[in-house]
Write a protein that binds this DNA or RNA. Structure first.
Lengths: 256, 256
DNA sequence: CCAAAGCAAGAGCACTGCTCTCGAAGTTGG
DNA sequence: CCAACTTCGAGAGCAGTGCTCTTGCTTTGG
């Protein structure tokens, strides 16, 4: 005896699911993604097989195409999820253990460590988003919002430090070239932050370099070169913090 | 009428090729690699197909297995070649235009630009070596020698600067943790350089971060974020130079 | 209650990496 | 010079892949 709910009501209620059909659909989509993630973790993106996923789920391969029109679409879904996961890891790192009360350098370090930890735990998912993009495949627009989540955390830390005056101007070396002003203005507006453009340049560079450090470790560039990875990463990341004006001078970093 | 040459003589003469058979073999191997590189450039590593390579070369697919026992072996060969290519690009950047006579910061910048330029010209080959490793595949020991070629160039620049006293000690921020001393000693010995361990830590970090910058640009992380890529890269790399003690203070960088 | 839409299943196409066998070439020692 | 030996190319074949199309069945909604 279900009370009549027309489509309009449902739409206005947002996330409420109507029939058993749709309920089954989102469950199946979730099951497919879960199984795909499992195979991704064990064999890597290149060996992710639609047929194998279907087989494991007890369905025939062609049925899977009702939920994901192609293999790349499945991968895109996983990519978006991965961006969300690393973004959430970063956010939780600032929220936890004192959270915003901690000093900006400590939060910076915590976020970097959290991102690295996530990457080490989910190497193939990390490779999916920060490694080489699959075949000729270009990440669709939809992923960009999820992608900026992590960066936003870093920018938030810098914003707090800047607002409280704890940020040293990063004027060492040559200043940021004027050509970048337009790009930075765009970023500042889109992320709704209030920071000077030169600082944003440093932040973007630091964010990018952070993934250089993580990728190098994860993709084997440090094999037989760096064995004390925790110590190396901690030091390098502290230097990145210094580069953007955090943690220099009097502030004492919780060192290795 | 061929003068008798036994195996010993040939071995002692090194690269001399004997029969038409071996001559043909190295030619065919080269042709296979060339065609594979062509397909790599157009379709990416994941779509590199042994059958397609063979087809294009007018041979049957099974014949190809006489030269490369598996697809991964072909990829390994391409990886080694790619490491060599980027290493050579880096070396030529220091050799050309004044070469060692140029100031260390200028050479540093030139090398970074050369590596980036090579990456932009050969994105798929770059992805092969600095992107996510293919499937579950671990790069064999043989690639490590070629891999260190590029890093060696950077270390050489730092060495020259250090020897001539032009290097500022990079003591800003926290010092490198002691745990890294062992790793750095190993690097110093293997690369036959004479630099203090803390400096080597900074160099390794900078080398790693350099590939973060390049990978971010190449793998789409800068899409709709940074459009003035030359300017951004130049600035970020100059800051990396500063980080390792090059180019700070009085030296004037040929800025953007 | 019945048409419409969503769905699973199967067959099938073109492709892949890789193995095995079988003759034809090339190489080498007597 | 020729017989034994090795290397090679070609073909067939296996197991797997992404993806499409058709055929019925079930759920849904007017």
């Amino acid at each position: 005896m279900v009370i009549a709910l027309n489509a309009g009501t449902l739409l206005s209620m947002g996330s409420r699911v109507q029939g058993a059909r749709e309920r089954a659909r989102i469950e199946i989509v979730a099951a497919i993604k879960a199984e795909a993630r499992r195979q991704l973790a064990s064999d890597g993106a290149a060996k992710l097989s639609l047929r194998a996923v279907a087989r494991e789920l007890g369905m025939v391969s062609s049925a899977l195409y009702r939920y994901f029109p192609s293999r790349d679409d499945l991968l895109t879904a996983l990519i978006t999820d991965a961006y969300d996961a690393v973004g959430e890891a970063a956010e939780q790192a600032t929220a936890g253990s004192g959270g915003a009360a901690d000093s900006p350098p400590a939060r910076w370090l915590a976020v970097c460590r959290a991102v690295r930890a996530w990457a080490l735990e989910h190497p193939h998912e990390y490779a999916l988003i920060y490694g080489s993009p699959v075949p000729g495949y270009a990440a669709p627009q939809s992923t960009t919002v999820a992608a900026s989540r992590g960066a936003l955390v870093m920018f938030g830390i810098a914003q707090d430090a800047y607002d409280s005056g704890a940020l040293r101007e990063p004027t060492r070396g040559s200043a940021a070239p004027d050509a970048l002003a337009r790009d930075m203005a765009e970023i500042i507006e889109r992320l709704d932050i209030r920071l000077p453009a030169p600082l944003v340049v440093e932040l973007v560079a630091a964010w990018s370099e952070l993934f250089g450090l993580i990728s190098s470790e994860l993709f084997g560039q440090f094999n037989r070169v760096v064995t004390e990875r925790d110590a190396f990463f901690g030091h390098a990341v502290a230097r990145l913090a210094d580069q953007v004006g955090l943690g220099g001078g009097s502030a004492v970093l919780p060192g290795e």
